[in-house]
């Protein structure tokens, strides 16, 4: 029983990171019906911002988090404006190729700056409590709580504010939104800013939990988060959150009962099975076709 609880806590920690990144994929898809394949690499850039802010600026945790989130958000907005916006009317495949290209650029640019893996310094004291035989690390607990807070904030923005309303309206029918006086381009930029900043936050948290970072760390984590978004129903915000935790739980489960090399394989198998039997994911609905 203690073993189960121990694994559950691990699943929550991994799941939180996947969920935060998955939100970025799902928000951009919701508003532009485009997969931002550079998003996993933006998560990586977030971890590197964290590293730089901690090492060179010698800052404590909160400013480091803010710098990473804001930095990645700005980068996300610049990418959207320069790389994706000119392609909005172009065929889907052009945007996908561009996103992959942007991702490769981010990886190789970071590689050029940092040829060797880096160690993120310990930003928060790590205490471990033993509670009925289950060891609870304060970092893991912190990651889960901070992630949930960020997700709660996002949920409030999307559900309660005018900007959130505009985001939802764009995902339903982008053509009508400007007729109500809403600046669509601004909302799209805000969506990128919010979505990528959550990826940046995930990068910082990843650095707390697994301090060794490298320019390719965003690839596999990005895929897992993307699968989470699809599992939850791409375009659906709560779906992405649920999907992240499902993937986290699945991974921990796989490692517990199978050789650990099966972990990524099982995640991709899940994606394939889902695409066959429930392509719209858990919370997603087939969007009514407009004529």
């Amino acid at each position: 029983m203690t073993y189960v609880f121990q694994q559950l806590l691990n699943a929550l920690q991994v799941g939180s990171i996947y969920a935060l990144i998955a939100l970025g994929y799902t928000m951009v898809y919701g508003i532009l019906t485009m997969i931002n394949f550079a998003h996993g690499d933006l998560f990586m850039v977030g971890a590197f911002f964290c590293f730089f802010a901690a090492i060179f600026l010698n800052l404590p945790f909160v400013p480091v988090l803010v710098i990473s989130m804001v930095g990645v958000a700005l980068l996300g907005v610049v990418i959207e404006r320069c790389a994706y916006k000119p392609l909005r009317q172009a065929p889907r495949v052009s945007a996908i190729i561009t996103a992959l290209g942007v991702g490769l650029f981010l990886e190789n640019f970071t590689l050029a700056l940092n040829p060797y893996p880096k160690q993120v310094p310990q930003l928060l004291a790590n205490t471990t409590w033993i509670f009925h035989g289950v060891s609870i690390s304060s970092i893991a607990l912190f990651i889960v709580i901070l992630s949930l807070l960020l997700m709660l904030m996002l949920d409030l923005i999307v559900r309660r504010t005018m900007v959130g309303m505009a985001m939802r309206a764009i995902s339903w029918d982008k053509a009508v939104v400007p007729l109500l006086g809403v600046p669509v381009d601004l909302i799209i930029s805000l969506t990128f800013a919010i979505g990528t900043s959550l990826g940046g936050a995930a990068g910082v948290m990843y650095g707390l939990a697994y301090p060794v970072i490298d320019p390719y760390m965003g690839i596999m984590v990005g895929w897992k988060a993307f699968i989470s978004a699809v599992v939850g129903g791409i375009g659906n915000i709560r779906g992405a959150m649920i999907g992240g935790y499902i993937l986290g739980a699945l991974e921990i489960l796989v490692v517990a009962v199978m050789p650990s090399t099966y972990r990524d394989f099982v995640a991709f198998v899940l994606l394939l099975i889902l695409l066959i039997f429930r392509p719209y994911g858990i919370l997603g609905k087939p969007h009514p076709q407009k004529v």
Binding site: M162, M165, A166, R168, A169, S171, W172, D173, V176, V177, L180, G181, V182, P288
Partner: peptide, 16 residues
Amino acid sequence: FGNLTVMENLKLATWQ
């Protein structure tokens, strides 16, 4: 907007 409530549909039009 079918995914917004009636009130939200109206409110969005007050953006400007």
